[in-house]
Design a protein around this nucleic acid. Structure first.
Lengths: 187, 187
DNA sequence: GGTGGCATGTAACCGGTTACATGATTAT
DNA sequence: ATAATCATGTAACCGGTTACATGCCACC
């Protein structure tokens, strides 16, 4: 039924949502953007775009307007928009926090412009909740297992904890930057 | 020449270095360890162990001692130890910091017991240096591009920066926990 | 005329994911 | 008995990596 889309596929759709682009332009975005590691290799992007097109999620149009070199501009189709929204609005689970913070960070990055500020806040709150629940279990693990680990092993674990704590603190700070509309749109 | 080994392969060798184990035991480690996301699926671990064995890096011995159910215990061979050390001692590049912090964290976790405290410290210092150089470029990027991004996009970028800053701070703190032997073993 | 950026693709390879398969042992 | 855990594997699928291939255009 609902087709499988790779993380790269969602990233491409998210970018196409903000502006129609060619594969080359999308590659440049990946090459220049420092965070969220997507490869800018043609062997990843062009096949991914072709897959999205086959699935009817994006449309590629060759522009031959002014005798320029050929260039294929992709646009997000309605079905693509639906899939993008579905992905962004998926509930956040504990597993997402453990195995997929990178994906969550990408989802949040797109959320404002695709599903709106109110839903961004929802996403943030859910993320904060999951992190708040998860961080203590890491501390427990460290307390119970820390002595069995070699020095650098324990330190490495501590680094992981610090990273999660930083993300939690970030989520809290981020929430304060959203104007708290008196009575946020109920329901 | 020097065979290609996946990150999972190195992780397995690192664990086998500390104690010979069966595939099942290694799976349990992955299932229970909260950080560094390796799958505990048999479809990943057993083929990976088989590859390492083909490459002469580990040796698997079936234990049939007391009529128990069969169990294959793997041990790290000398060649495996060499590859493991080579991996741990590889110089750290800027690209490692951008695309492979997870791998660096794993390398550091194994470093104490495989290559010794002195080399752990070297690794840490190199990591600190790379992070110290990289973090400012992220701030520059945020300053120059932040205004072009939607709110949540900019916030997402800030999260990435916070994570790198947390890792940098961690590296500094970690270095202070190593006893500074007066005149660290020279050369 | 050569370098470098624009622009799109293909194909072999590799390894992780998912799902299936098997069977012994241990606890309820 | 039967469910859970121990224990090892196989095979199809998928998609990212790497490397190769092509050709235009601009600039010096």
């Amino acid at each position: 039924m609902s087709q499988k889309i790779s993380l790269l596929g969602y990233a491409l759709m998210g970018l196409l949502h903000s502006r129609p682009s060619s594969g080359y332009e999308l590659r440049k975005v990946f090459a220049q953007t420092p965070l969220i590691s997507f490869s800018d290799s043609p062997g990843a992007i062009y096949p991914a775009l072709a897959r999205l097109e086959e699935q009817g999620l994006v449309r590629g149009q060759i522009e031959e307007t002014t005798g320029l070199r050929r260039k294929k501009t992709y646009r997000l189709k309605a079905a693509g928009m639906r899939e993008l929204k579905k992905w962004l609005e998926k509930p956040i689970t504990r597993d997402d926090v453990i195995w997929g913070m990178e994906e969550l960070s990408l989802r949040f990055a797109f959320s404002d412009s695709v599903i709106g500020e109110g839903n961004s806040i929802k996403l943030l709150k859910a993320l904060e909740g999951q992190l708040k629940a998860y961080v203590p279990t890491l501390h427990d693990y460290l307390k119970s297992q820390g002595n069995n680990l070699p020095n650098s092993g324990r330190l490495s674990l501590e680094m992981g904890i610090r990273v999660y704590e930083a993300q939690l603190q970030w989520a809290r700070d981020a929430l304060t930057t959203y104007p708290s509309r008196i009575k946020v749109d109920k329901k």
